[in-house]
Amino acid sequence: MKNKFLKGAHLSERKFKEILKLFSEDLTATQIANISGVSRVTINSYLKKIRMQIVRFCENLQSETAVSGVHRLHRAHGADVVQDTAVGVKPEVDRLMRPVIFGIYKVDNKVFTEILPDVSRSMIQAIARGRSVLETVGTAERIRRFNGVVDLGQYRLYHLGNGHHEPEAKAMLDDVDGFWGLTKHRLAKFKGLNRNTAFLHLKECEFRYNNRNEDLYGVLINLLKTFPLNLS
């Protein structure tokens, strides 16, 4: 069946666009399945692929702005600006023991996030209080390049004070707070977030926040027209 948005689809383009429209309106998989008449299993499969394409888009945008934007911003504060690779999950034992912790920073009017798999709750609390121990000095400097860090286990945002003396400081803090408000509201709908899917949902929140003033359905249509999904 021909579908320019979904290669190898057994679903019409019209039906897929209906699903995409419902997704853009931030409905749950159950709600989308009930409205569209498509099985929950199929909806979950499609939504995962849509989110994975959103992740690729966000990471490409992030890499394009990182070299100039992040380095320019944090060079002014004398911070370590080594760019980390975002990691979605850790080994099995860490999934059971560590909370999901991520950093938030803003560059060129866009908010970006990175999951920090090697950062513990106690590290964030110490750094937020302006303290660090010898073993975590490098980690502390790396964390401080973010404008905020969130502990998803406690649904808590820590402001780290970066950029408070810059002219755009208030706008930066407003965006960090605004992004966390959106993310907290959205993730609460899932009533517990699987660590394996945390990265997908986090990047979806990033995408939604950065396109909050746009027609999200139109943005998604253009994205999937350029980079279609593939069921294989």
Rank of each mutant, 00 (worst) to 15 (best):
K4R: 11
E64L: 13
N196R: 15
E135S: 14
Q62M: 09
L61I: 13
L73M: 02
A29R: 12
V100D: 11
K15P: 14
L187R: 01
K15F: 15
F5G: 03
Y158I: 01
G69F: 02
K4D: 05
L157T: 02
V133P: 03
N211S: 11
I124S: 03
R56W: 11
L229D: 04
P91L: 07
I143R: 02
F179A: 00
Q53N: 14
R121Q: 09
F190W: 10
K191M: 07
G78K: 07
L134V: 13
Q125R: 10
S12Q: 07
V67K: 09
N213Q: 09
F102Y: 11
S36Y: 04
E59Q: 13
L182E: 04
K48A: 10
F102C: 10
R95K: 08
N194I: 09
R95C: 05
F57Y: 15
E64P: 05
R40F: 09
E18Q: 15
Q154Y: 10
Y46E: 12
V137I: 15
S36T: 15
F199N: 08
T42I: 12
E64C: 08
M52F: 10
S232G: 06
H185Y: 15
L96R: 09
V38I: 15
K4W: 08
E168C: 11
S122P: 04
K90C: 06
E13W: 05
N213V: 06
R14S: 15
F190Y: 11
I104S: 00
L134H: 13
G103R: 01
S39H: 03
A76P: 03
L187Y: 01
I115F: 02
S63A: 08
H201Y: 05
Y155R: 14
K7I: 13
F23V: 00
D84W: 12
V150P: 01
A33F: 01
T65F: 04
V82I: 07
Q83L: 06
G163D: 00
A76L: 04
E13C: 09
Q154A: 12
S122T: 08
R14K: 15
R72P: 04
D26M: 02
Q83S: 06
